[in-house]
Computed example of a mutant assay.
Amino acid sequence: MDIVLWIIAALLALAFLGAGIMKLSQSKEKLAASGMAWTEDFGAGTIKLIGALEVLAAIGLVLPAVLDIVPVLVPLAALGLVLVMIGAIVVHARRRETQAIGINVVLLLLAAVVAWGRFGPYAF
């Protein structure tokens, strides 16, 4: 199970690192034009904040365990992503974007598995 948790954490880290960098590096208008219609409901600063949180969580999912420095940050990062995904589900539900909700639920469940495993029976 330890290997499964590593794989899930690495995949989540890659996904959120890419998503976060995209939100940090592109303008609100460009993000909206590329299919992220939800950005119309938020200010540019809020979008950048979400991107920064995603990048920090991606780093926190892997780096503390690899370096063996404060490895408790791994499940905390996963828990943070669970909260981000709950927020994303709420936003997409309000906008009736059902396809995006499915992706958010999958990411939420994967992050919850990492949080459960690293807080519980497979802690570092």
Rank of each mutant, 00 (worst) to 15 (best):
M1F: 09
D2V: 15
I3A: 10
I8Y: 04
A9K: 03
A9I: 07
A10Y: 00
L11K: 01
L12C: 12
L12N: 08
F16C: 09
F16E: 04
F16A: 05
A19E: 01
A19T: 02
G20D: 04
L24S: 10
S25W: 02
Q26H: 14
Q26N: 14
K28G: 15
L31T: 04
M36W: 05
A37G: 12
W38M: 02
T39S: 11
E40T: 14
D41M: 11
F42A: 04
G45E: 13
K48Y: 01
K48I: 14
L49M: 09
L49T: 08
I50M: 09
E54H: 08
L56R: 14
L56W: 11
A58Y: 01
L61H: 07
L63A: 13
L67W: 15
L67H: 11
P71S: 06
P75A: 10
A78T: 03
L79V: 06
G80R: 10
L81W: 11
M85Y: 08
I86V: 15
I89N: 08
V90S: 01
V91Y: 01
V91L: 04
R94S: 12
R94N: 13
R95F: 02
E97P: 02
I101K: 05
I101F: 01
I103A: 08
I103H: 03
N104A: 06
N104T: 00
V105D: 01
V106Y: 01
L107K: 00
L108G: 00
L109G: 02
L110Q: 04
V114A: 05
G117H: 06
Y122D: 06
A123N: 10
F124V: 06
